[in-house]
Amino acid sequence: MSSQARGNRTTSRLLMSPAVISLLLWMLVPLGMTIYFSLIYYNLMNPFLEGWAGLSNYEFFISNPAFGDAVWNTLLLLGSTVVITVGLGLAIALLINDPFPGRGLVRILLISPFFVMPTVNALLWKHMMMNPIYGFLAQVWTFFGAEPVDWLTDLPLFSVIIMVSWQWLPFACLIFITSLQSMDREQLEAARMDGANFLQQFRYLYVPHLARSISVVIMIEVIFLLSIFAEIYTTTAGGPGTESTNFAFLIFTEALLNFDVGVASAGALFAIILANIVAIFLIRMIGKNLEN
């Protein structure tokens, strides 16, 4: 390699370094502080308790009976929401793909839940839909002579899944509708002539065509749904017990209800690990689709 090329490389690295260094600091400083806090005793309610804690914060966080529940709830919330939004999203997108009168309006209505703030969404569901006395669902149940369900008490995690799915369904729909518009009509006609029924067309033409958008939807949803918080905070507050506590909410409980910054930091580091495990699976599963 000529010395000029080497010189060029040094210059370009030098010129890039401000951006890289500031990004690195942006990431490393909070991470470093979190690691540091996780290793000391640091409880806002007990200023006299201080000093090096070693791994005892981690031990405390793991041995918390809520820990296992939180991991399970996080994955369950994530998994069900992704399955529901992708499944229903595909169905709806296919349903409204063919022209019909009022399609524009239907599309706008379908997309609108995405613009509702998460807290508002949760409150709407909590009070208007799921309230066991005056909620809409209770009215429906009563109309059919059934005992109204007390959603947030009896099925807390399921209720949260419904709310979050309602919020994210439009996103999935939107991506799929857009993608369907680039579906080749002649290919579908060729498949019809080849004798493919709708299910076979779905399996052999639509799914391969939509594979990339499905990957994108899953990817983005996973990123946002790992840390669902507002919906839980405003509705069930993680309860009853820990039935609807996910990881983000557990860390919040430690930090701002128990005021234990040390344990909360240890929890945050576990969350990073969990996110990475999910990310590895995710990239294995769908990374291929994004490449080609």
């Binding site: 002649e186 290919q187 006609e189």
Partner: peptide, 10 residues
């Protein structure tokens, strides 16, 4: 077909 309409994923 004019565009051949081959199935692109096969």
């Amino acid at each position: 077909f004019q565009s051949y309409a081959l199935y692109p994923h096969m």
